[in-house]
C-alpha cells in the first residue's frame, strides 16, 4: 500500500514536470520582425532593403520583409534558431545568410529588430504591447427558459 502511494506521488510529480515541459515548449508567442531604421542608445542601424526570415524547425512560411516594414509570426516555445537571409533587390538571389540562436525572454521580448541583430547589438529584442483588437463583442448566454421570462 505504502509502495503504491510512493509510486502515485512519483507519477504526479512526473506529470507536473511534463506539464511544465508542455507549457514551455507549447506556449505560443507572437513575434514582430522589424526591418526599420532603429536607434539603440547612441547607435543607429539602417533598415535592410529586403530580407527573408525563418525560424528553424517551425513549419510555416518564412516572412519576407521590405525595408521600413515589419511583420508578425506566431511561434511555439522559447528556444529558436532565427535564420535571416538578405535578398537582392530582384527578390531572387540570397546575398547573405546568417543564423542566430535566441531564447525569448520571460518578459516576452517580442519586437525583433533585424538590423540591430545583424549588427550584433545585444538589445535587439524588446518588449512592446500589442494592440490586438478583441473579436466582435458577443454576449453572455441568453435566457433559455421562456417560462421565467419577464412578464411584460
Amino acid at each position: 500500500m505504502k509502495r503504491q502511494y510512493v509510486i502515485d506521488a512519483l507519477i504526479v510529480l512526473a506529470l507536473v514536470a511534463f506539464s511544465v515541459f508542455l507549457y514551455q515548449s507549447g506556449k505560443g508567442y507572437t513575434l514582430i520582425f522589424d526591418n526599420r531604421d532603429i536607434t539603440i542608445g547612441d547607435t543607429s542601424y539602417p533598415a535592410l532593403p529586403y530580407i527573408r526570415v525563418s525560424l528553424g524547425g517551425v513549419s510555416g512560411r518564412p516572412l519576407e520583409i521590405m525595408g521600413g516594414d515589419r511583420d508578425m509570426m506566431t511561434v511555439m516555445g522559447r528556444k529558436h534558431v532565427l535564420k535571416v537571409e538578405i535578398l537582392s533587390d530582384d527578390e531572387e538571389t540570397v546575398t547573405a545568410t546568417s543564423e542566430h540562436r535566441f531564447v525569448i525572454r520571460y518578459d516576452g521580448g517580442n519586437l525583433l529588430s533585424i538590423p540591430a541583430l545583424l549588427s550584433g547589438d545585444a538589445e535587439w529584442n524588446r518588449r512592446i504591447e500589442l494592440n490586438v483588437a478583441p473579436p466582435k463583442e458577443d454576449e453572455a448566454p441568453k435566457e433559455e427558459m421562456p417560462g421565467t421570462g419577464n412578464p411584460k
Binding site: 433559455e144 427558459m145 421562456p146 417560462g147 421565467t148 421570462g149 412578464p151 411584460k152
Partner: peptide, 19 residues
Amino acid sequence: QSFGFIQLYMGPFYMAFPA
C-alpha cells in the same frame, strides 16, 4: 394571456423544469 405572447417551437422545451 398574462405574458402576452404565445411561444412556439423550442419555447415549451424546458417548461417542465420550473414547475
